[in-house]
Design a protein around this nucleic acid. Structure first.
Lengths: 339, 339
DNA sequence: GTGAAAGCGCTAACAT
DNA sequence: ATGTTAGCGCTTTCAC
């Protein structure tokens, strides 16, 4: 454990403040603040500017985040709350782009990883005073209200959308819709849905299932039969067997992990994929292409979602009107051999 | 996007402060502070205490984190910095336990997910003023120094240890050591190491490789041959073929993901596992048991690591002497069929 | 046991 | 163009 006491730069010394910079450069603290914050209208002579900047650099000056936040009445922190699930490349890209986008506007993204009660989120929020909270999956109204009461200004889900809840929901439902449309287009009439065992995923799974249900209804098929698929050989087989026995031929899986388990189950049961059972995942994780047979799945442009959400959040914080939702947040079917 | 303006609880109203609570309960702000912070020695009459608490609850009072941090000169935030890798259950458990442990001591854990330059970490640190930063993998000395200069008091790796760098390193090397010991114990003389393609994993992989190298040296075997294994069918096959052609019989993989790719490669190449090639992973992800054949792997007790690190950090912040490192942070070989 | 008051470091309105 | 000043909300001596 590489541990050291405070201020290895100037050991034992207290932090340098804007007063130090002011003294060092022979101006007042106000001027220092003006220079460092670069107000657009402000007119500071180049010479002074240079002197202040120079002094700040020489002293290794770092403005106190707490003091600034106290004065301005708000921090520049955005908190992303999500369960600490197995993180796929999809979420990674989203986080990456979101952080970059926010950073360009002076906001800072940090993450709270937890899948337990909303009370831990509340605690973190109270310790951080973030200006906005993004939650995946979406927060129910009551916890959401408590965040506002703790001073958070904006609360949103990860799905980019315009209006209140509905648009978000449209989006959340889409993976299921695409899976079902694809399978039905292939001629499958009886669909199953591979539900994830992890209970924290339930809200997300519920949305995807709804997308499938709507599709089935629209196409005049019977509603999908839901089966929980554990990531565990023996019990995964059970789910597969049940589907097959009941004449189900197309399985929409919550995600690729579930789909891979279904594939394993089918193999153990000596069922052919896609002959006996067609399988579709969501996410297009790297392992999907490696699977036996290679997995057909839904790919999301989560990077674009991240960028777009960042842009909207920046606009909200700046008080300007948010940009319109990106027109084509593509989500597409990656066709391989499993369906 | 469920978005709303500030203070849905009391719309348009500014936040309630300790002054409001004081007024409401008919005492001074000092008393409010005493009651809410519950100083051990402090002696406040039950009646007053109750009145203050009641008023705080009624007003939905939330202390300002910035003001408190400014006054105390330090936040209660601990920042965990890690690349946004695929998060396995191992890291999840670590994060979970770490967060819980810290929370019990009044510290709050948040995560910065990024695999790019250390400068983004520096920015986040300056926006948050965390009291400690935990980094995985470990931070080199120079970035570490800059964190201290920005006011961070303690910087550490995720590996629990006592002294400066060495203990951490011992720990990081262990997975490789266990893999090699197991394979050599099985009679394998010529070992390979499955290097991950993701460049951000290199520092961690390097440590594990070093564990294998030492083992080979100690046992009089030739040093392990390193092959990069992409999570991609065709190129994974190549790595496997190269090993096999050169007479390698035991493969230590960086983690289970790499090991699963090796398994897939071996299957495509019609090599038998463990007959032609014995394969060992690290992590024991759920899919490991599902693999064909089921994967032998190294399981870490990362939950205990998390707890222990939390305890040490709490002690440091409190100024008391840190508890000794846990004696038996077990890391064990989970024997299945792939080796 | 409780209150008055100082001050943490910063920004922004106002004064010069 | 720059300096003076008044707080932001909190904790914590120091009086009473």
């Amino acid at each position: 454990m590489v541990v050291a006491e405070a201020g290895s730069a100037r050991p034992g010394r207290r932090a340098v403040t804007s007063a130090d910079v002011a003294r060092e450069s022979g101006v007042s603290r106000a001027t220092v603040s003006y220079v460092l914050n670069r107000k657009p209208g402000q007119t500071i002579p180049e010479e002074t500017r240079r002197r202040v900047l120079e002094a700040a650099r020489r002293l290794d000056y770092v403005p106190s985040a707490s003091a600034r936040a106290l004065r301005k009445g708000q921090t520049g922190i955005v908190l992303l709350a999500m369960p600490n699930l197995p993180q796929g490349p999809v979420l990674s890209a989203f986080v990456h782009e979101l952080a970059d986008g926010l950073s360009e506007g002076g906001l800072t993204l940090v993450t709270h990883l937890d899948d337990r009660a909303h009370s831990t989120l509340l605690k973190v929020v109270q310790a951080l005073s973030p200006v906005a909270v993004i939650s995946y999956p979406q927060l129910p109204p009551e916890p959401s209200r408590r965040l506002f009461a703790s001073g958070v200004r904006w609360v949103t889900g990860v799905n980019l959308s315009l209006g209140p809840r509905d648009d978000d929901h449209q989006w959340a439902v889409l993976p299921g819709r695409l899976q079902a449309e694809y399978l039905i287009g292939l001629g499958h009439q009886r669909l199953g849905f591979g539900w994830p065992e992890d209970p924290t995923l339930a809200p997300i799974a519920q949305d995807r299932l709804e997308g499938i249900q709507r599709c089935c209804a629209a196409a005049g098929c019977p509603p999908p039969e839901v089966g929980t698929v554990p990531i565990e050989p023996v019990r995964a087989v059970e789910a597969v067997a049940t589907w097959h026995d009941r004449g189900i031929t197309g399985i929409c899986c919550y995600n690729d992990d579930v789909a891979l388990a279904v594939l394993a189950g089918a193999r153990m049961r000596h069922l052919s994929v896609p002959g006996d059972l067609a399988v579709v995942g969501v996410d297009d994780v790297p392992l999907a292409a490696l699977a036996n047979p290679p997995l057909t799945t839904i790919r999301q442009r989560s990077d674009e979602q991240g960028r777009a959400l960042a842009a909207r959040l920046l606009a909200l914080v700046a008080g300007t009107s948010p940009p319109p939702a990106a027109p084509d947040l593509t989500m597409s079917v990656v066709i391989r051999e499993s369906a």
